[in-house]
Write a protein that binds this DNA or RNA. Structure first.
Lengths: 112, 112
DNA sequence: TTACTTAATCGTAATATTGCAATATACATA
DNA sequence: TATGTATATTGCAATATTACGATTAAGTAA
C-alpha cells in the first residue's frame, strides 16, 4: 500500500497556499526567543547580532539559528557590515503578519 | 557541571510571561491544520468534531489531537452533546490573539 | 443486552525543533 | 602575516511534534 503522507512531517499538500503561509509566519512567532528578538528589533530599530545574543541570553549559535528562521520567511533582514551583521525588520512581511491577524481570520462571531 | 537548560526543550525560564504567552498562542496557529480548523469554525460558527475531520482530511485521532492543543490555550471550547462534541471559538482568547498582533508588537518603524 | 456511533486516548514511527560545543569563515587590525 | 572579532555552519543529543492504527469509553438505538 502507498501512503499519501510522510510519517512525522506536516501534510502541507492538503491545505491552501494561504493556510500554509499563515502557519509559516505564526510558527516563527511561536517561540519565545523569536518573540523577544522581534520585540528587541522593534525597540532599537536595528542592531548587530552580538547585541541580540547579549539581550536574549542564549548561546550565539542558537541565536544565529533563530535569526535564520526569521530571515527565511522574510520577517527580518541582515546586512553585512565588515565582520558584523546588522539586523532589522522587513516592514512588508511585518505588516503581512499583522494583516493576517487583523483580516485573515475575519471579524469575530459570537459563540453560542 | 550543572546545566541551566534541558537539552532539546525550549528555555521558557529566560523570557517574560508575556513573551511565553504570545509564543504559545502563535505556536497553535503555526500549523496549517489548526489554521484550517480555526477558519472553518469562524465560517460555520460551531460544529461537531466529525465535520472537522471531513473538512480537513486528516485522520480522526490527528484532528482530535489538534483540537486538544487549541483547547489547551483556550482558543476553542468543546461541549459534549451525547456522543458528539460541539466545538466553537472562545471569543476572549480569540480577541487576545488578535490584540497581540495589533498591540503587543507596537506600531511598525521604518527599516533604514 | 447487543450493536452502532462518536470522539478521546494509547502506542508507535518518523520527522522537526531546540540548544550548545566545536569549528569554519570572513573581515579587521597590529 | 598573524591575531583578534563577529557570525555562520556543522555535528550532536535530547525533546517536541505530527500522523495514524488500534483501542477505549460513553452515549444511542434496536
Amino acid at each position: 500500500m502507498q501512503y499519501t503522507y510522510t510519517m512525522g512531517a506536516t501534510r502541507t499538500d492538503i491545505y491552501t497556499a494561504e493556510q500554509n503561509r499563515i502557519a509559516a509566519i505564526a510558527k516563527v512567532i511561536g517561540h519565545p526567543a523569536r518573540v523577544a528578538i522581534l520585540q528587541y528589533l522593534i525597540k532599537v530599530d536595528s542592531c548587530i547580532c552580538g547585541e541580540i545574543v547579549d539581550e536574549i541570553g542564549l548561546a550565539q549559535p542558537t541565536i544565529s539559528q533563530h535569526l535564520r528562521e526569521m530571515k527565511q520567511i522574510g520577517l527580518i533582514r541582515g546586512e553585512i557590515d565588515g565582520t558584523k551583521v546588522c539586523y532589522c525588520i522587513n516592514q512588508d512581511v511585518y505588516n503581512e503578519m499583522k494583516q493576517i491577524f487583523d483580516n485573515a481570520f475575519g471579524q469575530k462571531i459570537t459563540c453560542s
